[in-house]
Design a protein around this nucleic acid. Structure first.
Lengths: 289, 289
DNA sequence: CAAAGCTGTATTATCGATCATACAGGTTCC
DNA sequence: GGAACCTGTATGATCGATAATACAGCTTTG
């Protein structure tokens, strides 16, 4: 009666191996078990193992050498393409200037209930909806859907939106943006986002939903962002604050955001400053084994 | 030549419909197109559409009424089981006391290179590795893998770890925890995590990797957390700081940190505070059961 | 050099997912 | 009540994913 819809054995093996690699169980540069061994271990055929390895290779996690074996791609160069941001999205406005943006959709529509609700619109009010893709080095990494009230959207043109950060346009119009709330989550890539981000359909995505308010408390921008997790992630530094009973983590705000100094000073902090460093990555060191 | 390994048409349709629902295109409580209509629209058979709807129903996103239709489940009660945290993980220690924890694994092992690196261990040093699952109301929502240096792990017992937050145990041992860095990302559920979190294997997960340092700069805890996105998400309030040229968002620290429930209170916030909290919604007065 | 192990490739067979179709039973609306 | 819709269920045919096997070519090792 039941079939459980087991979504592809190859995918299962792929995920399992991927976990082992990112968890570090398989050392970078090391060779993982041969295809026949993997097939036996997971009770599948070698063809299926092969499909899993194909996926890993396509993502740059492993490298196959005919006659020799399959190796974990040691270069961390895959990861830190886009990363870091000490406090939240602090440098997005900068990125708006240093990255390419493709405007996929632009128009005025009737808002969904969720959008109208978050922007505090009256029934009947329309919104400007835009879909953009951000690229870095020609590779897409974020898929942005924004909604702004119609009266605000009319203060700039489609061409301007394609060229400048939305928040800049909003502030240019005279609207004050003081507060915002946001939520970070995860989902699977749907058809449109997958196509725009150059991904398979079931790929995982980081989501950011942000609502920007003007001082009066009215919402002026609803942003829904999807990020490729291999090209983007949220980094932050924390400090422990509070007294005994109520100690908790808090984002470290006043942080040396200038990439230049910091490193020079503490370069000699005894033996090593563990990797996983946010700002200015460990890739500067480039030590391998 | 290639077949592209299209991972299940049913999954594609499921994702597409899910996107429409969460995006609000399909109003909560509304009826979505009939199965024959959906089948025609996406050029698949009705059986396949059915499988997609099965998935949606299992997740509580839709409700099927024989003879009537399939409806978007209006109660948002599904979503905000666990949510919010104004500044990062501020209340995790509280949650450690109000939720159940299941210890799945506990032992001392040789660290992977990545772990040893982030904790600043010397070659040969061992680490304590533990895997825990956190439940709220009996439902799992997070899967935590922690690594701490052996000398630190020996200061508490397995039973203590199962009962108290790890950070509390670390601080009890006299180690000062002042700083930490963390990264938020997304992945797909592997076999172990999927089983522990009661999910399908390819499900999306929120990840949090945090490294806690003692004042000397040595790492004392490496935490890798996986969260069910439908039961957990990171919320934060932002304020805009800086002068003209360098305006950016910054986490709002001293904020009324009780966005939690209190539906009673916020009933009077009128339109001024547009909620942002998904917990609300005009017609979604909730609720079933 | 030769043996052993590996990846790359092809073949055929099997099993599950999908399709197309039909029918049963409930709901809605006229 | 009855027509028109809907979901629930079953059938057999078709297509893709997987299995089992075999072989070619390369690399490593002794």
């Amino acid at each position: 009666m039941k079939s459980a819809v087991e979504p592809l054995k190859a995918r299962r093996i792929y995920l399992l191996l991927r976990d082992r690699i990112v968890a570090g169980e398989l050392p970078p540069g090391g060779r993982l078990p041969g295809e026949p061994a993997l097939a036996a271990e997971h009770a599948v055929s070698r063809v299926t193992v092969r499909r899993a390895l194909d996926l890993l290779e396509k993502e740059g996690l492993v490298q196959r050498k005919p006659g020799s074996g399959t190796f974990v791609h040691d270069s961390r160069s895959v990861r830190p393409i886009v990363a870091d941001l000490s406090n939240v999205l602090s440098h997005l406005i900068d990125m708006g200037r240093s990255t390419d943006v493709k405007l996929l959709s632009f128009g005025y529509v009737a808002p969904s209930e969720a959008i109208a609700d978050s922007l505090g619109l009256k029934p009947g009010e329309r919104v400007q909806r835009s879909v953009r893709v951000r690229l870095i080095d020609g590779e897409p990494f974020s898929y942005l859907t924004t909604h702004v009230p119609e009266w605000l959207g009319l203060t700039y043109s489609e061409a301007e939106l394609a060229a400048r950060p939305l928040l800049e346009l909003i502030e240019r119009s005279g609207v004050k943006t003081e507060r915002a709330t946001q939520a970070i989550n995860a989902t699977l890539a749907g058809p449109e986002a997958a196509a725009a981000l150059d991904l398979e359909i079931g790929s995982p995505l980081l989501t950011l939903t942000r609502i920007v308010y003007e001082p009066s408390g009215r919402g002026v921008e609803h942003l829904h962002a999807l990020y490729r997790p291999d090209r983007y992630s949220f980094h932050m530094d924390l400090v422990r604050i509070g007294d005994d009973g109520e100690r908790r983590w808090s984002p470290a705000l006043g942080w040396p955001r200038a990439p230049n100094k910091t490193k020079a000073d503490k370069a000699k902090t005894d033996k090593n400053k563990p990797g996983e460093k946010p700002t200015r990555g460990p890739r500067a060191i480039k030590q391998r084994s």
